[in-house]
Nucleic acid binder design. Structure first.
Length: 773
DNA sequence: CCCTAGTGTCATACT
DNA sequence: TAAGTATGACACTAG
């Protein structure tokens, strides 16, 4: 019970200190409501840190005593706590996984679509036109508009119903690939610098048969695209500008793609048509499309799944970032956050061009992609607005395992059509190490909202290198421990000098204000605070030790001005100690020889008198034949010996024991207070570290989210590319309003009527909700 | 005179 | 059990 009480009170103290030290908004609610263990930890945990630091033990060690067994490793404790906090912060990143469904596509000549899976077989006759695919993400969009972000995402169709379920291995692989692709396209992972990719590309060219595809892509593509290239501000990569009239580039790049598709896919003969630009453009989005329609049209993949991110929480996180910036981390985010226009360059850089029409004079032999063994789920985009951002966006969507793709499409490396070779073959090798697999669950609207938010925040200039540096800094600065440098043992540096000073400087009562103390030969620990007496004490074999200013001065304060000395310590040093000047005793016991300027002597005596503690006065009054320092600091055996040497009355003995008790207790109290102070200071530093960690993790999160958004956009554009190339038996493109592509779990692709796709989407949207209940 | 910080002391519990 | 230690509480003092 006692320990419980102790823990509780101490915990409360620390908790309060923590909150007050933070001084900024703390997510206390999160901990209180949903995370009781942390609260319990906050209350109970620190208690261990608050107990028994044994400051003097180190000194005792110096004096020949061992470390007190009660000493607690605060370092470990605080480190554990810090790690716990990090882990806790990380769990906000966890999002439910998104199930990627796919259907095996087999399109028979009659115009019906039949999947290899029974449930997916459907006829195309159900050309029911546009479906009302209103997204189910109203709540999310509220906050979107409120924050002024993500309109572009909506335009991109981020309102599609969610896909749900567990990720299969292939899904993960695909996600991984997408991730890397994204990285390659400038997701901010500088580790994948251009040269690195170049090397990979070179290697892959040697390894892969489809080198020609890669060659044609950059060569022809570059030529054609050179006119309207945008440069990714982040990676320096170029991609086509989104020019409304830029059909040329698109057509050209698509032609390249198509050539490979034709060479790869065993399409039916009767399905081959020369591409008719006009017919294609009909199926292509136009600027005149109502915005609402576009929203629905462009949502094959940017589907909402679950909303793992509490927007409120995220907003708090962002606020926290800004708070951190106020502290020191950065200073620009808030401005960016609040002032950045919705169409900030960063966002637009990676946004598809909703209004870019796509003209492709290409054709498919058959209106089906037989057995595309990709797992990415392409959900139906709706009609007209099929913005293909740029040909460069075709690059992503590579399967982690290109062999499966190849086997599916035949001997030709179709993957090379869509993806650079180096990504095909080295996807696994170049994976970002330890990259979590956040993508599954991240593909949801709420995430996109956040992404937009984060995109703004990220402009503060964070990069992974900085993050790692920060991390290193944190690692090296475990900061939470009461390391030896903060313990009184460090006194030795300043104290040792005086320990050997002559013992008989005596009555001079040095008025030097410099604090100096020493350890006695016995190793007993005394306490002396100011001026006088030290040398005399040594003469007595007693020892004092000074409240070490240096110790406090070493406490980590970021403000250099505070480093010099804590102002409130300037008053420490009153001499309330028992370490009276022997001269005083001597002068009392042995009156001065005689008339030696009585005035000054009296003054001196008065002064020393005032310096004496009550116990010293009592001792003198009781004619105790030895100093209080001896009484207090001598080991028990010597102390008893000393007592035995003298014939002392009961009163004297009682007083001596009281003096000893009080003296010991006084030192204990001093140690106790020091410990408290250290604990508080360390808590303060702990809070700072945690805040920095939090800011760093948030920045990393921003990075992840942005990459995710880019991947989504690329997948969407890929979908549009593929869909736009599909031709029915008459050689006409399928209407996005009537058909949609879906991917089955087994890697197959299915062209299904839009109505069915919508139904499935809704069904899958309901699933997670039900699961949540 | 009041407030605050530092300190000493006591009582108590613990080691 | 004795001695030492830790700490909350209180009082005192200086600034």
């Amino acid at each position: 019970m006692l320990s419980l009480k102790k823990y509780f009170t101490e915990g409360l103290l620390q908790f309060t200190i923590l909150l007050s030290l933070i001084g900024v908004r703390v997510d206390v609610d999160t901990y209180l409501t949903s995370q009781l263990p942390p609260l319990r930890e906050i209350i109970l945990g620190p208690s261990s840190a608050y107990t028994q630091t044994q400051f003097h033990n180190l000194r005792n060690t110096l004096d020949g005593y061992g470390i007190h067994p009660k000493s607690i490793d605060l370092d470990n404790y605080f480190t554990a706590r810090r790690l716990l906090s990090q882990v806790r912060a990380l769990d906000r990143f966890q999002v439910p996984t998104t199930e990627v469904n796919a259907w095996l596509v087999h399109r028979d000549p009659e115009g019906s679509v039949s999947g290899s899976q029974p449930s997916s077989g459907l006829t195309l006759e159900s050309s029911s036109g546009l479906q009302d695919v209103t997204g189910p993400d109203n709540g999310v969009r509220e906050s979107e508009t409120e924050q002024g972000f993500s309109e572009d995402l909506e335009d991109l169709g981020a309102v599609a119903p969610p896909v749900s379920g567990d990720l299969t291995k292939e899904d993960i692989d695909l996600i991984d690939i997408l991730w890397r692709q994204d990285i390659d396209l400038g997701a901010g992972r500088e580790i994948f610098d251009y040269s690195h990719r170049q090397k990979e590309q070179d290697v892959d060219k040697e390894l892969q048969d489809g080198a020609e595809q890669e060659d044609t892509w950059p060569s022809e593509g570059a030529e054609a695209l050179a006119r309207n290239l945008l440069v990714d501000g982040e990676t320096g990569e170029s991609f086509p500008a989104q020019v409304p009239g830029g059909e040329d580039q698109t057509a050209l790049s698509l032609k390249e793609c198509l050539r490979l598709v034709e060479a790869t896919c065993p399409f039916g003969e009767n399905a081959e048509f020369p591409a008719d630009i006009s017919s294609i453009t009909e199926a292509v989005p136009s600027e005149s499309e109502p915005p609402g329609l576009q929203n629905n049209l462009l949502s094959p993949l940017l589907t909402e799944t679950e909303s793992p991110f509490d927007l409120e929480q995220q907003w708090q996180d962002l606020m926290s970032i800004m708070e951190m910036q106020a502290m020191e981390v950065n200073t620009s985010t808030s401005e960016i956050l609040y002032n950045a226009p919705p169409g900030d360059p960063l966002s637009t850089n990676y946004s598809l061009a909703p209004n870019t029409p796509i003209n492709q004079n290409v054709s498919l032999h058959q209106a089906s992609l037989g057995g595309c063994s990709q797992d990415f789920s392409l959900f139906s985009p709706e009609v007209e607005s099929l913005p293909v951002a740029s040909s460069s966006t075709l690059l992503p969507l590579v399967p982690s395992n290109s062999t499966s793709l190849n086997s599916t499409f035949g001997s030709t490396n179709l993957a090379g059509l869509f993806f650079p070779a180096q990504l095909n073959s080295t996807a696994n090798d170049t994976a970002v190490p330890e990259l979590p697999d956040p993508l599954g669950g991240l593909l949801d609207e709420a995430m996109l909202d956040e992404i937009s938010l984060m995109d703004l925040a990220i402009e503060e200039g964070f990069n992974p290198v900085q993050a790692s540096q920060l991390e290193e800094e944190f690692d090296s600065d475990s900061g939470l421990s009461l390391d030896s440098s903060h313990s009184p043992s460090s006194l030795s540096s300043s104290e040792g000098s005086s320990s050997s000073s002559s013992s008989s400087s005596s009555s001079s009562s040095s008025t030097s204000s410099s604090a100096s103390s020493s350890f006695s030969e016995e190793g007993a620990v005394g306490y002396s605070s100011d001026s006088e007496t030290l040398d005399l004490e040594e003469a007595e074999g007693a020892v004092g030790y000074q409240p070490e200013y240096s110790k406090f001065c070493r406490m980590s304060y970021q403000d250099p001005s505070q480093l010099s000395c804590l102002p409130y310590l300037e008053h420490v040093g009153h001499n309330h100690t028992y370490n009276m000047a022997p001269s005083a005793l001597d002068s009392a016991d042995l009156p001065p020889p005689s008339a030696l300027k009585k005035g000054s002597k009296e003054k001196q005596a008065d002064f020393l008198d005032k310096q004496m503690s009550r116990d010293e006065h009592r001792a003198r009054a009781m004619k105790i034949p030895f100093t209080n320092d001896k009484i207090i600091n001598l080991p028990v055996e010597e102390f008893n010996e000393l007592l035995s040497k003298y014939q002392l009355s009961e009163a004297q003995l009682s007083l001596i024991r009281d003096i000893r008790r009080r003296g010991k207790n006084k030192m204990a109290a001093q140690n106790c207070r020091k410990r408290k102070l250290d604990t508080i200071l360390n808590l303060e530093r702990d809070v700072e570290d945690l805040q920095r960690d939090k800011a760093r993790l948030l920045r990393e999160k921003v990075e992840f989210l942005r990459s995710l958004r880019q991947m989504k956009q690329k997948v969407q554009s890929l979908y549009q590319e593929v869909f736009g190339r599909l031709r029915d038996e008459n050689g006409r493109p399928y209407s996005p309003s009537q058909y949609a592509l879906q991917y089955a779990g087994d890697g197959s692709v299915l062209l299904i009527p839009r109505t069915l796709a919508d139904q499935q989407a809704r069904r899958q949207e309901r699933k997670p909700k039900d699961r949540r209940k």
